[in-house]
């Protein structure tokens, strides 16, 4: 086996169409999952940070109006967004009182915003779970297919020496390696984001009633 035969590019050129297809799918998975990881890492971290800062300000200041004006600084904070929704609904209730209970209307608005925020936070994250679960199997499929082809070639050559067997298996194993390379960061990121989003969701559920209460107090 010459030196040129062991390079990655040579391995790719020597691989069959099925293995190449598998590698292309895994590459797309990997690129997509890394884009999501980078994007989500920024947005979740900002949301956590600004929510924490907003909560600090919320407990310091008693006036709903002042808090609302401060929420402009925390546009990425999930808690700030929910408070804004509660305050705006409170203003709307005050402007046009209806038959429905004020508290109920504000609570609905808060619930709606919480749902939207949860949806926004957890968007694209399931793709990471999909990549983490399926990429190794896709890679394994490529490997099995590659080894099948390799053994067929060995049968045609009618030689089972290591020099004949090894290159085919080596090419095939690239697919498993690619599958694992795509899956490992995706699984790690999925676990991290799940934990962080869970924390934010618990905060939202916990503080939503407080936001409603503050807004109603302000109305009175």
């Amino acid at each position: 086996m010459s030196d040129s035969q062991v390079g990655i590019i040579d391995l790719l050129f020597q691989a069959g169409p099925v293995v190449l297809f598998v590698l292309a799918v895994l590459l797309l998975f990997s690129v997509g999952s890394w884009a999501i990881i980078l994007y989500k890492f920024g947005s979740v971290r900002n949301s956590m940070k600004e929510s924490k800062e907003f909560l600090d300000y919320f407990f310091e200041s008693g006036s709903a109006e002042r808090i609302f004006s401060e929420t402009e600084k925390f546009r990425n904070g999930s808690l700030a967004k929910v408070f804004r929704a509660a305050y705006i609904e409170n203003r709307a209730v005050a402007a046009s009182p209806g038959a429905v209970d004020d508290r109920l209307r504000i609570a609905r608005a808060v619930k709606r915003e919480v749902n939207l925020e949860e949806k926004r936070l957890s968007s694209l994250v399931p793709f990471l779970a999909t990549v983490g679960n399926t990429a190794p199997f896709i890679g394994l499929f490529g490997t099995v297919w590659g080894i099948m082809s390799a053994f067929q070639n060995i049968g045609l050559v009618q030689s089972a020496s290591l020099a004949v067997v090894a290159p085919g298996i080596s090419e095939a194993l690239v697919a498993t390696a690619a599958g694992l390379a795509a899956a490992i960061p995706a699984v790690m990121a999925y676990n991290y984001f799940s934990q962080q989003i869970g924390i934010i969701e618990r905060d939202l559920e916990e503080f939503a009633p407080e936001f409603v209460a503050v807004c109603l107090q302000n109305q009175l």
Binding site: V31, G32, W34, A35, I36, L38, Y39, G42, S43, L124
Partner: peptide, 11 residues
């Protein structure tokens, strides 16, 4: 836009 930026970074 942000997502496409990160997609380009991933590529």
């Amino acid at each position: 836009k942000t997502f496409f930026f990160w997609l380009a970074v991933a590529v």
